[in-house]
Amino acid sequence: MLQLDRVQARFDDFTLAADWQVPKGARVAVIGPSGAGKSTLLSLIGGFLMPDQGRVLWQGRDLTREDPGARPMTTLFQDQNLFPHLTIAQNLGLGISPSLRLTAADYDRIEAALAHTGLAGFGTRKPAQLSGGQQSRAALARALLRDKPILLLDEPFAALGPALKREMLGLVTLLADETGATVLMVTHDPAEARTFAPLTCLVEGGIAHAPQATAALLDNPPPALADYLG
């Protein structure tokens, strides 16, 4: 269970509060107007920002003081998910060992993860030699290798076209099904929320509301969400 226990964070121009929990294996869409704090919510969970009050817990374990790299989660950012000076295999290897001390077995795992995400044979290339969709696949392949129980998606596919985006979401669903990961995904697209996430967390007015059933929320939106959806 991922729990946000009376989390409060104040920044220069706005505040964000969250007090809810979702069960292990849940898939949650995070939706809301621009600037409301969707990315901030993920940053608080991921450990890139510190809450002023409250705790972040996973299976009862308090993560609030832990470094981002020590938390049981992988974040896919909007951009800069790969180091451009390292090969794809090295980028994936960082998911196994941050000091890149890799055994032959590790390289086999990297090759398998690449094959699994449709990137077989791309290990020796640099990110710049891959298309945008392939770069997203590589980042997903590393998430697969890290094998953390929580996956945070901060619009990593925003720059892709609609067809590619659907394809990547399909891949995320497949991987999440296999690993049983809990997934939080920021999105602007209600259709995306409907297909991917049974639960949706609405972020508006300084509050990340407790996740509700996606269909019910979108069919009968509160005023703020209705304004946003238009």
Binding site: G46, G47, F48, G69, T75, Q80, F83, L94, S99
Partner: peptide, 20 residues
Amino acid sequence: DYNRLTSSLGITGFARLRFV
């Protein structure tokens, strides 16, 4: 550009210097 990625992967110390 890369601090979030570096720390989310837990790359620290000498490895951070050498690889990033």
